[in-house]
Nucleic acid binder design. Structure first.
Lengths: 194, 194
DNA sequence: AATAAATGTTAAACTAGATTAATATCATTT
DNA sequence: AAATGATATTAATCTAGTTTAACATTTATT
């Protein structure tokens, strides 16, 4: 497995010695999924936090009316998992599905528990990642309340230009919390405006 | 200051020795606010993570149309701060205002940095808290998309029965992301139904 | 190249929730 | 007990976003 992207990523937060790096890598598992495969299905326990090397996933929730709601898209150098399920080892609320062939590195729950003890620094690393994810999540709640669908779309487009091009429009609508028809309307409006 | 509630709370996640507890307490500051006072104002840097001993705060965001959006209510045994601002030490997006006279324990940013080094176990403690907060925040995003205002109100009422009684209805409406008039309508509907 | 499958657009009718505005209730102060 | 300010209700009108349904376009498959 190509561990460079992960080590690079970790080094932004903490410094690992050679020995520590060796321990870390010995606990990790490489896994490749094909487009259309599930990394996690709601109802199953999320046994791995996954660091994406290549490809793209959507994390979504299927409500009791059978409607799909996309929580987040994940691409290279980011994570895919159901945090709630992973930390409590209880059934997941979310599905993680590959939108492209996807290579990732799995941190199993057991491995993280051991790693936190063997390399306490990793607590700090993981804490920092989760802190930023929480800040982003809270900002999204506020945006959903205070901004119109059009404003939210513009922010999404600016924040994730790379993602927009790789993903069908109806999924972006689901991420924004609107229908595909309405997103289509917004886009044609934007074209008229400029 | 009465440190019992905090120590009790921490002990749910990690075990501290007497020495560690002493170090921890030596870095903390007790602070009392009156009803109506700000613990944090948007634009200021969030210099403290605050553990609430008594009282109640609202964390809210004032949008550019002058509208207030409540992100969270915090009471005894919970935290109040702007995580994003605190971890990056950049200006806050949120305000934290006391809805009652409020006693709290301040963890300054500098103190937490020192404490993480002196008592590495605290990384684990804080990581776990943040993880649950993230899981809760993600669940809220999905709820806001997939549930009607009425369903969201019922979930709020069930999840935070203690909070509902202490807080004016128009603030609960703001937390739910609806107008006070519409919440009023929902409540009268619920009365008719039963 | 032809067909099927997936994705995107348009427009009309509809609804959850917002806005406005008037009135009612409750708590606090004088 | 009257008066003030804060909170809550009700009803009419309005709008952002949904639903339904028909059609258009792009992509993948044979």
């Amino acid at each position: 497995m190509n561990t460079e992207p992960l080590l690079q990523y970790i080094s932004k937060y903490i410094d690992l010695t050679k020995d520590e790096t060796a321990i870390l890598l010995s606990k990790l598992v490489y896994r490749k999924y094909l487009k259309g495969q599930y990394v996690l299905q709601q109802g199953d326990v999320c046994k791995h936090a996954c660091f994406i090397l290549s490809g793209c996933t959507k994390t979504f929730y299927m409500d009791n009316k059978g409607q799909e709601h996309i929580v987040v898209f994940s691409i290279e150098d980011w994570w895919a998992s159901d945090v709630g399920s992973f930390i409590t080892q209880t059934p997941a609320d979310y599905n993680v599905l590959c939108l492209e062939d996807t290579e990732l590195i799995q941190f199993s729950y057991e491995a993280t528990e051991v790693l936190y003890i063997e390399i306490p620094k990793l607590e700090r690393f993981y804490r920092k990642i989760i802190e930023s994810a929480l800040a982003a999540s809270q900002k999204r709640i506020v945006h959903n309340f205070s901004l119109s669908a059009k404003e939210r779309y513009l922010i999404f487009r600016d924040s994730y230009p790379k993602i927009e091009q790789r993903i069908p429009q109806y999924m972006i609508a689901s991420y924004l919390g609107i229908t595909k028809e309405f997103l289509s309307k917004i886009k044609s409006q934007l074209i008229l405006e400029q």
